[in-house]
């Protein structure tokens, strides 16, 4: 029974990820709209378990976000002296941190929609897409997406909510941890602990 259920789950996840593997979008705006639409239809509004939502979100996250670029940015100046082995460990843990912290709140979804306002050029073949998450009560939250052009289309490299950048916040926080709590190995150990705790809560 358990076997069959997990087999179905895996097949569904493969199907979902397969679908999402297509181009993210020809323009930054289209990429953001596709990401939001897929997130709302296939994950937030879907009647599936939390674990399944996590699996699906990971697929979506990997397709629409350039996670290696974000990871390198987050480590910043410390990336230079990090071994390839530690870098790979960091990237995997960082991906887990974001996936688990985002999916934890999916249960609170209450019909919010994403409305894209405009898009302005940014950096190397990139853009900042300004949008708002609008709730049923009309209250809105300003969210900006920083994108860069990649082989598979436009990918997200940062999310900025009310002026606070996710990438910069992680970068400043992790730099402080590296400085004050035993360097890169200290950071990896603390991230591992955090990921284990978040994963344990996934089924509760």
């Amino acid at each position: 029974m358990i076997h069959r259920r997990s087999a179905i789950g895996t097949a569904a996840a493969a199907l979902f990820v397969g679908r999402a593997m297509a181009q993210t979008g020809d323009t930054p705006t289209v990429a953001i709209q596709k990401f939001a639409a897929a997130g709302i239809t296939d994950i937030l509004s879907a009647k599936i378990t939390q674990r399944e939502k996590t699996t699906r979100f990971r697929g979506l996250f990997k397709t629409f976000f350039d996670i290696p670029a974000i990871g390198r940015f987050v480590l910043g100046r410390f990336a230079r002296a990090t071994s390839a082995d530690d870098m790979a460990k960091f990237q995997a843990l960082f991906e887990d941190v974001v996936v688990y912290t985002w999916t934890r709140r999916f249960g609170e979804y209450d019909g919010q929609t994403l409305s894209v306002r405009d898009s302005v050029p940014d950096g190397d073949e990139g853009a900042i897409v300004n949008s708002a998450i609008v709730g049923k009560d009309g209250q809105s939250l300003a969210v900006a997406w920083r994108t860069r052009k990649r082989a598979t289309g436009h990918q997200i490299v940062d999310v900025i909510i009310e002026g606070v950048s996710m990438a910069i916040t992680y970068r400043n926080e992790y730099a402080t941890v590296i400085q004050q709590n035993g360097g890169m190995s200290g950071l990896l150990a603390q991230l591992k602990k955090q990921v284990d705790e978040l994963a344990a809560k996934l089924d509760s």
Binding site: D66, A69, I70, R72, F73, L75, G76, R77, F78, A79, R80, A81, G123, D124, G126, R146, R148, R150, V157, D158, I178, G183, M184
Partner: peptide, 18 residues
Amino acid sequence: EDPFAKNSDPSQTATSTV
């Protein structure tokens, strides 16, 4: 350089060590 540039491989521009 754009910190999110496509080929921003930090090991290529190593100038200091930690």
